[in-house]
Design a protein around this nucleic acid. Structure first.
Lengths: 230, 230
DNA sequence: CGAGTGTTTGATAGCCTTCAACTGGAGTGG
DNA sequence: CCACTCCAGTTGAAGGCTATCAAACACTCG
């Protein structure tokens, strides 16, 4: 199901895409010309773990979850990508399968660029390469920070931190289930629910089936500090 | 303290350095010509957290620990680099400080390349860029794997896994203290000690002050599986 | 209306950190 | 050469956090 997304929209998207900030205008036009839009219904798989990389993907609309799963079945969410965020920065260069899979959390539109073409494009745009390396550096830092949080913070604090991060990125209404939040905080659904219950009692959030609202972002932040001092 | 390491040795090092595998011979010669060797005594700091990046570093001799520390004081070891391994792949491109610091675990010699020069060099060697992106991809995968291990494996299994990885990389004699292993396994010194005690009782390892020997690598691996099924 | 998914809450067990005390060896300074 | 200090290792006990299991309940979608 290939949706028509006109050239101007694709160009606009790449102009503000993460990692493409400093790429020259004519080059943006070139990659926009090569990109093809494709829609994915809610819950569908965009690419799979252990599947060789064929395309470079950028989110044009919707939210895509990229997750990392072990043989044992445990999964951690690596990325929640929205408009302008690339899904796979490494795959195109190696062509090899990675340990990640991507699914659409809501009906989404992605831009696809043929892998070979993308790599050649990157090599003649140093600004893009710098952008990619920068993003990968952030990814490494983020993963290490989560590792440290797993060690020194308790479940409550981790959940609150996740809510805070989600709030900054997606606003006051968060359309995530408790198990999705658990996968981000590195804990179980039940523990998340208990934590949400406590926050709801204090009037900091409001929660419903598959969505929750942050009512008092400031108190959320403060609550995190409080927890830290207990 | 700048040690003279002759051109041939520096060239030999870059030839086999991680990420440089496919770089053309004449280019290897060029970067070897630019590199300066510097020795660091055991325990000394090579670069510090929050300090802007000035050089690209490759280990020529010794072992260097790169670690990631939180404000709370918890540290995780990100990398144990030996001969031929680069310390900082991201820093040179951004110039910004990262959250990592590097210290020499034993007396070590590093090759330093001026950051600006290195970046220009990388941009005219796509093979190197591909290598760098590949290594960063591995780093992301590794961090995510450790995250999953923290969730689904118990301390024992994590420690054994670390011993196994160290054994593959450094051989049968491991010159690490328990707290260094703890920093790798994401646990406390005491828990590592208890685990080492159990392995020693079974004759799988032998341990002394600041070093330990893997006597039966195969049983170590099997023990890991055993633990998995308990 | 039934099924399935997401939410809620309680009870329990157990892993692991934390705290504490002690040992032994290496290195240092007198 | 000796004494002292400090670090690394060792072991025990206690307690808390959280995963796990279990049982309902509510809402949505077919």
């Amino acid at each position: 199901m290939t949706e028509q997304l006109d050239f101007a929209s694709r160009r606009e998207l790449f102009l503000h895409a993460l990692g493409f900030e400093r790429v020259r205008g004519d080059q943006i036009g070139e990659i926009a010309g090569q990109a093809v839009a494709k829609t994915f219904p809610k819950g569908s798989t965009i690419f799979h773990q252990d599947e060789p990389c064929r395309y470079f993907y950028v989110v044009a609309r919707g939210i895509v979850k990229v997750e990392f799963c072990s043989a044992g079945g445990t999964c951690v969410t690596y990325l929640l990508a929205e408009k302008g965020e690339p899904l796979n920065l490494v795959g195109p260069f190696t062509g090899l399968p990675r340990m990640m899979s991507a699914t659409a959390l809501e009906a989404s539109v992605l831009l696809l660029v043929e892998r070979d073409w993308f790599v050649r494009f990157a090599f003649r745009n140093p600004e893009l390469v710098t952008g990619i390396i920068q993003i990968l550096g952030r990814a490494v830092d983020s993963a290490n920070n989560r590792l440290i949080d797993m060690m020194e913070k308790r479940v409550q604090e981790r959940v609150i931190k996740i809510l805070h991060v989600l709030n900054r990125k997606f606003g006051d209404r968060l359309a995530f289930t408790s198990s999705e939040i658990a996968e981000l905080a590195g804990t179980t659904t039940e523990s998340v629910l208990r934590c949400l219950g406590a926050l709801r009692e204090r009037g900091i959030i409001r929660s419903g089936r598959g969505e929750l609202w942050i009512k008092e972002p400031v108190r959320l932040e403060r609550f995190q500090d409080e927890a830290f001092w207990v």
